[in-house]
């Protein structure tokens, strides 16, 4: 608490002592493994009863399965079923990263551009590979919309290529910026509480305001955590739809 730096929460620290330092195993890696384990546990333990009338946990597991399935099929089309495992994994990895990051003393790995850009590049490589696999060299017609005047090609093609290349950037920046901004704001208001709390009785009473704001912010951040994971998954679906159908 010596220096009140709202960005300090994003520094990576090795965990597990000597092992962590040698393997560069930071709390981000730990949280990723935790998130993956929790998703697996949710499905494994949730579906264990296999009852026709699901309990709470089984209902949650079934809802998450059906929700992503309907999103994949609804957005991509019938081919969406082939990409369901990828979208499901992507959505829940991001969702659990966002939500686990809201717990005290934890760490939000989705607040690092390296992580989100890595995920976005994974999507980008996948949609490009799928496009080539489905359409072959016809893929390049994506960069020139049918019906446009040919003499405009030198202008349209570079713009379309840039637009295509900007996808992973916008995809990753959106998630990263949302998570970063939310956590910085939470931190800044928390510092206000501490500063005001140290300023006598009047300050102590005034500190209720930023504290209340933080409470509201946590609720808002829960919404953002879900929304951003959803947006990432839906955009992946839209891109996959474009890759499968070309326009």
């Amino acid at each position: 608490m010596a220096d009140m730096n709202p960005l300090e929460q994003f520094t990576l620290e090795p965990v597990f002592g000597h092992f962590g330092q040698q393997a560069h195993f930071s709390q981000a890696n730990l949280m990723m493994i935790l998130a993956g384990t929790l998703v697996l546990l949710l499905l494994r333990v949730g579906m264990a009863p296999k009852s026709v009338v699901p309990g709470r946990l089984q209902a949650l597991a079934e809802m998450s399965y059906q929700g992503i399935m309907s999103m994949a099929v609804g957005t991509i089309g019938e081919e969406g079923k082939r990409f369901f495992p990828f979208i499901f994994t992507l959505f829940f990895f991001i969702l659990f990263g966002n939500i686990l990051g809201l717990l005290p003393f934890s760490f939000t790995y989705t607040s690092h551009i390296a992580v989100t850009f890595g995920l976005a590049m994974l999507v980008f490589v996948l949609i490009t590979v799928v496009s080539f696999a489905v359409h072959g060299l016809h893929f390049f017609s994506y960069f020139f919309p049918a019906g446009a005047p040919v003499f405009l090609a030198p202008l349209i093609v570079p713009i379309e290529i840039l637009s295509y290349l900007s996808r992973p950037v916008s995809l990753s920046v959106r998630l990263f910026a949302n998570m970063l901004a939310g956590h910085v704001m939470l931190d800044v208001f928390a510092y206000f509480v501490i500063l005001l709390g140290g300023a006598g009785i009047v300050g102590g009473i005034a500190a209720i305001a930023p504290m209340g704001l933080d409470v509201v912010m946590i609720g808002f951040e829960l919404l953002v955590a879900f929304l951003q994971a959803y947006v990432f998954a839906v955009l992946t679906c839209i891109y996959l739809h474009d890759a499968v159908h070309l326009h």
């Binding site: 840039l162 900007s166 950037v169 916008s170 920046v173 947006v231």
Partner: peptide, 18 residues
Amino acid sequence: IGAGTRVGVEMVSAVVVG
């Protein structure tokens, strides 16, 4: 809010890539 930030991110990312 969602629409606003999405528009901003889309525009800026394309400019940055260019």
